[in-house]
Amino acid sequence: MDTIQNSRKVISILVDNKPNTLARISSLVGRRNYNIETITASETHMPGVTLITLVVTDTDPDVLDQIVAHIEKLEPVREVHVMDSTGGLYRELLLLKVIVDKDARSSLVEIAEVYRAKIIDLSRSSMIIELTGEPSKLDGFMDLMSEYELVEVCRTGVTGMNRGM
């Protein structure tokens, strides 16, 4: 199972898309000394409504409850909830640029296949790999990649959705 259950919690926040909303949330998190791992903001199907997803490393229920209670008070916030650990689906996207030589190329292609990652750019000396999945899968992939000479890595941060209705 994925590591979200064990060491992280995902908080999903629906907000009105008003100026400074992301800044208000990150300011609050900073001020209250909560530890966040990632924060993402994205459009939703509702016009003027944005989804902000926070991944926090505090999993103490009292701390989580405090985070939710404080976020709830912000004026542009419509809805906040801590996502279900087991019923939730979480995805993150990773882009990675790695130096390739003849020897490395085939082993990288193999690893990419195992992870169902896509090679989206290939040149004589480098390769860009795209991988989508649960954060734990990305972590595992990164672990293998540590043996190679990496040029650049970026991860989007987690977004998630509860299963069913």
Partner: peptide
Amino acid sequence: ITGITMPITKHNFQ
């Protein structure tokens, strides 16, 4: 000033 007062207001507007 809206940035400065973000953590000390219930809300602010520009």
